[in-house]
Write a protein that binds this DNA or RNA. Structure first.
Lengths: 187, 187
DNA sequence: AAGAAGAATTGACCACTGGTTAATTAAATG
DNA sequence: CATTTAATTAACCAGTGGTCAATTCTTCTT
């Protein structure tokens, strides 16, 4: 037993790529190390040469999703306060419901390390969410309220996750929810 | 092989009782059929004589928690509109965070049957939540807004779940969140 | 070119999970 | 007492994440 012939070297990138592919259709617990390995034509043991464990692998997978989310927030900065804020709300829910498995791992699971949202990446995204909205409103909002808003959007995603396939199936409800929160935020 | 001697008959009640006990400290995925069985001094196979599967067993376990939740809602009916509504918000978050494993199974997991919240019991509790608040406000509220409120409380529970041990550790945030939602609800 | 050193892969294994079932034993019934 | 019936067991299945000694392939050195 030894090296691979077909795909020659099994790089970290290839593994992440395949894990990402399967993650699009199945959630964390349903994507197994063995299924990733067999798709790559190797055994699951070899993945452990490149990654310490399953969590580390999937942390690598979701990196780009955090980038996407942060990017989205930045893109809303050149808008009017109200419009920009609503845009962020909508986009957040859209992101969460169009990347359900990933969202879950990013903000809920992460169960290797006690508190998902205290991890660097989730924390950073949360901070960016708050800072961006605060900036749109020239620091006139109460941070607690922005935090409550985040929690409420988080709730929307987790409420509809599993019930619907894609964001569009909850578009109307999302719009109503966004208006509801916007009203509470800007009084 | 055969009957039990120690606890004589292994009734459904005894199994539910033990599952409930372990459910207080560990979540659904960490409570195994084997651990329940061994605590009862039998093998896990025998549990399957009384319950079709793990989900059915835990459905029996959470029955009383749905009753608790519904009871709580009814107890808030003889209060003033604003006070009663806030009371419900607080109590809901308190329930969720003081029964984290159970809450998760009641409203998130239930993964055998696609949509947890469309299951009879969760659905009934959600309806009671909406109806109770509507009644406190003499049907003057928009149902969509009450629904958004529920989602936001749901979000609060799931956000703090795992981060804190008990509700009291998030008491201040819960109060702020309740005020935030109350404002949005009654304009 | 030969051989040693190192990197990468394998397969067999571990402990665990939910779930099934033939065989067995206990209790209830005639 | 015998027979039926209810309950329990142990052995098994397929699956999971994870580990590791043995092996093979690559590369570097002499």
């Amino acid at each position: 037993m030894g090296r691979k012939q077909i795909k020659d070297t099994l790089s970290k990138e290839l593994i992440v790529e395949e894990a990402d592919r399967q993650f699009l259709e199945l959630d964390f617990n349903k994507v197994s190390m063995r299924s990733i390995a067999s798709a790559l034509g190797c055994t699951h043991g070899s993945i452990y040469y490149h990654f310490q464990n399953k969590e580390e692998l999937f942390n690598a997978v979701i990196e780009k999703y955090f980038t996407m989310l942060n990017q989205m927030l930045e893109n809303s900065l050149n808008l009017d306060a109200i419009e920009g804020t609503k845009q962020i709300f909508i986009n957040y829910m859209q992101f969460g419901l169009n990347n359900q498995s990933q969202y879950d791992f990013m903000f809920v699971q992460h169960h290797g390390l006690e508190d998902p949202l205290q991890q660097p990446a989730p924390r950073k995204s949360l901070k960016k969410f708050i800072d961006t909205i605060q900036e749109l409103h020239q620091n006139r909002l109460k941070e607690d309220n922005i935090h409550s808003t985040f929690i409420s959007l988080h709730g929307f995603v987790l409420y509809y996750k599993g019930r619907i396939e894609r964001y569009d199936d909850a578009k109307i409800a999302a719009n109503a929810h966004a208006d509801f929160l916007l009203k509470a935020l800007v009084i």
